[in-house]
Computed example of a mutant assay.
Amino acid sequence: MIVKLGYVAMSVELQHASPSQTMTFAQFSKIKDREAAIRKLERIAESNLENCLRLLKHNVGNDIEFFRFSSRLIPLANHEELGDWNYIKPLKEVLGKIAEFLKGHSMRVDFHPDHFVVLNTLDKEILKNSLKTLSMHEALLRGMEVNPEHRCVLHVGGGYDDKEKALEQFIHNWGYIKPGIQKMIMLENDDTTFTVKETLYLCEKLGIPMVFDYHHHLANHEEGDWVSDWDRIVSSWDHSDLPIKMHISSPRSENEFRAHADYVDPEMFLTFLHEVKGSVPELHCMIEAKQKDGALFQLVRDLKERDSLEWLDQTNFVVD
């Protein structure tokens, strides 16, 4: 089984390469000339995307073939006071540069939109804003000439004191979502509300790939071992062109179990890998640790002390 490691959004190794520079609406409002304020927003977004390109080059130099883009690339993109702003148009050139780069290098890229994207809400305004945010992600992917299918991972949403009803509300709202947005979505078990089995219920009913988060499962499970559900998780990817993906992180401490640690515990990760080895030809593992690519490089150093792994290059390996 080939294992490819990825990391989230930004680098602790590269200086001055943040893809999440921002501007608040209060700052925007202080600029008297609205057109000048919009130009400033566009310059920030362009700088964020230029930094994404720097990060992609950094990844290639380190054989990292899996990367999650920041969802904060375009500040105020969906603000109600900026509904007339066509933010993609001025970014076509820099998006085109990313597209060219990705064409020349094998790299899986995706997004994890922020927690306010909730698809099982009863509030029509929240659903509308969630779909606007997902449309922005779709536009960015298309600008990068990346097929948007299965490129946005989401949590199921709120439990609203009745999880069964909340799951059915997700199915109800799904009918209002255009097929292009539906195809972008993957669902992940979360650390407080929806367990592996509950997330799988939706994934199987609606044909959505499931992203297994190992740390979340340890923090939130009502139904025992995840291993018995692994084949179902794998099967949820049958209709996807992409290899199965999972999330790996470690608890910060026993008292702050849900919080992500700076680094990944290699023993915890190896425990997972040895359970699933041989079940799939390729597995992509997204590291959700505070030290970003620093956590990836540290995990590689820790794993290289183990003789049982065959390394393909600097960061990708085979588990026999």
Rank of each mutant, 00 (worst) to 15 (best):
D238C: 01
V153N: 07
I244L: 15
D225N: 15
H150N: 11
I44P: 10
E305Y: 12
L56A: 13
L122C: 07
E93Y: 04
E188A: 03
I177V: 13
G175R: 15
F269E: 08
Q15W: 01
R68L: 06
D161H: 13
F212H: 00
S308L: 12
E46H: 14
K128I: 04
I171T: 14
S29V: 00
D213E: 03
G143W: 11
W174R: 01
D229F: 15
G6W: 11
S47I: 03
I126N: 01
L55D: 02
E50D: 10
P243S: 07
I233G: 00
N62S: 08
R43H: 09
L299I: 12
L141P: 08
R54G: 03
T315W: 08
P281V: 10
L296V: 11
N48M: 00
L49S: 06
S11E: 02
E50H: 14
L73H: 14
Y160M: 11
M107C: 15
H115D: 07
K89M: 02
C285H: 02
L131Y: 12
M1F: 13
D161V: 12
E288Y: 05
E42P: 00
S47Y: 01
A259G: 02
L102W: 07
K97P: 02
A26K: 15
R54S: 13
K292S: 07
F297N: 05
T315K: 06
M246Q: 02
A36F: 01
